[in-house]
Design a protein around this nucleic acid. Structure first.
Lengths: 340, 340
DNA sequence: CTGAAAGCGCTAACAC
DNA sequence: GTGTTAGCGCTTTCAG
């Protein structure tokens, strides 16, 4: 294993020498410290660009004890992660916010225990100034462990058992569930059903709770045979819908806890020649691009994905900069298309 | 901006002291150097875990001049990236290979010029030991720039103008195009057409060239009206298929340069009540999970996605470790389902 | 406003 | 085998 032969790359000392100032002054200029004479500033800038100087992060990081990088962690198998445009929206928002403050966003998928360990070491190694966790199931210990290491952490979604000191950002899932119910009710549904999300995620539970509550308030009961659990994937939604159709009486409306499952449900219905929305109305959740493309276009509850990402990144940076933050619950809205 | 208050975290000195050895010995133990007495090794290990010591990467990196991290760079808008399961496959392979050699994989999406600059600085800053680039369009200068910085680079896909010193990994796209043609020919197609990929990507060009060559060798000409460009997305494939149907005589078979576009084509056909494969046979490319789920299931040319990712990561690590590598072209195979 | 000097935490010769 | 000694490149008091 020969040593890596990276082209040397100018050092701050060289820049300073060329500019005829001390390394300290050069450092000040490059980090935007105002107390430097214009003359020196100019000289350093010129020298730096002449040498195409790029600061060595490791050195800076060692001295400052910060990395200027944020981890965007998805605790999910790779496929599921990629298959769901939900993440893309959040990631984009986070990316933008990070860029605003000149932070690099590092994207990490942890699919197994090895990955988890590696991430933990990575975070503990001071490689990131903070980590945001997406798709946290149940009581995943990872965020807590990283937090305990002293690394700022922000969660997407309300944690099952509120962890002290770990703030989160979530959409107002309960209201979202209610909106879905209202949409179905508005179409005159009398036998609604739902394909809910994994029971180990609060987002699933909250949506279901809101849905059920709204129905109850309108005098409609949601029997357990009308509730079936999906896994937030298209095929999971498909299977869940089939289960719903096979057991007991056919529902006249169904709320799928995310758009992917709603699309799966749509497919199951079409396979049986059941018309949507005439025979069965369908409402999804998220409003990912796929929803508008679905056949028929999907009525869904929109979560502000990009805003969520942006918010999480900002919270994390505030925390990393020694500030405070508090959790946030973001509003959702119903987007009416033709499926309900 | 108060200083980040990371919990101190034990240092190597502390571990050494507690173990009653010198820092050098402690370092040796922790980095697996064999020339250490068992006694010392044991003591250091105990001390380290008692203090829950975690090495500070910045310090190590500064001393070793390496970061043990690899960048997985996707030069594409976020959505497109996420929408295409192609990337998921490659990423998974890369992840596995990186893990094998204890490297952290950093995932970066560069969607605009700002992102590019930031990535370049990041790489120049010595934050990664190498970078693999996916979805490289035409003459994107980014990989070349990073390479010129002295950072090992590997490309997914054959570059348009072979860059000296930048190795790549690609599927055998020409053969893939031929296989697609053979599949269509086998169904007796006489008027095949194709939805090709973006013309600024060699993968598109190669697939088209192979397709055309195979047809020609079988006495079939591919007129320009039977070739339409898509953008590797579902909706792009949909639109392209419509263009194909509207212009001139209807084709009796179509080769879409990736599965996403093939699915779009399937939809366009269904919208017009054109039966697949009876009226028009369809062949895709990639063999992403979606292909098997399509209606009807898609016949497609499989690329070994995970193998490609694994290979790229290994090449990069070999390069980073001072070794040599050469480009590789991986075999593809036809997966026959019902669409052709 | 600027420079000198002291680290940040770790690795890697080099001696013993 | 193990300890000593230099740095790696940058920031940051502390004087001036």
């Amino acid at each position: 294993m020969t040593p890596p032969q990276r082209t040397a790359g100018a050092t701050l000392d060289e820049v300073a020498e060329r500019a005829g100032v001390s390394r300290a002054t050069a450092s000040r200029v490059l980090s935007g410290d105002p107390r430097v004479s214009d003359r020196a500033r100019e000289a350093v800038r010129t020298a730096a660009s002449a040498l195409s100087y790029v600061p060595r992060q490791a050195a800076r990081s060692l001295a400052t004890r910060r990395s200027d990088a944020l981890a965007f962690v998805v605790a999910e198998s790779g496929d599921k992660f990629f298959a769901d445009p939900f993440f893309a929206g959040v990631l984009r928002g986070a990316q933008v916010a990070a860029a605003e403050r000149r932070r690099q966003l590092l994207f990490v998928v942890v699919a197994n225990d090895d990955d988890r360990t590696r991430l933990e070491e990575y975070a503990a190694g001071g490689h990131v100034d903070g980590a945001m966790f997406l798709s946290v199931h149940g009581n995943d210990p990872l965020p807590g462990r990283v937090h305990r290491l002293g690394v700022p952490v922000v969660l997407a979604g309300r944690p099952a058992n509120p962890r002290v000191g770990i703030p989160y950002v979530t959409a107002d899932n309960v209201t979202g569930g209610r909106l879905a119910a209202q949409a179905l009710l508005a179409r005159g549904s009398l036998r609604p059903a739902t394909v809910c999300g994994p029971c180990d995620m609060t987002a699933s539970l909250d949506r279901l709770a809101g849905f059920r509550a709204e129905l109850a308030e309108n005098g409609i009961d949601l029997p357990s045979t009308a509730v079936t659990e999906g896994d937030f994937t298209i095929s999971g939604g498909h299977r869940a819908m089939e289960r719903l159709l096979e057991s007991g009486e056919r529902p006249d409306a169904v709320f799928a806890a995310n758009d992917l499952m709603a699309v799966g449900a749509l497919r199951a219905l079409r396979a049986r020649r059941i018309r949507v929305p005439d025979d069965v109305a369908v409402v999804g959740f998220d409003d990912v691009p796929l929803a508008a493309d679905a056949d028929p276009p999907l009525t869904t509850v929109r979560q502000p994905l990009e805003v969520m990402g942006r918010h999480m990144a900002r919270m994390l940076m505030d925390l990393a900069d020694g500030g405070q933050t508090t959790s946030a619950t973001l509003a959702v809205e119903l987007v009416t298309r033709t499926s309900a």
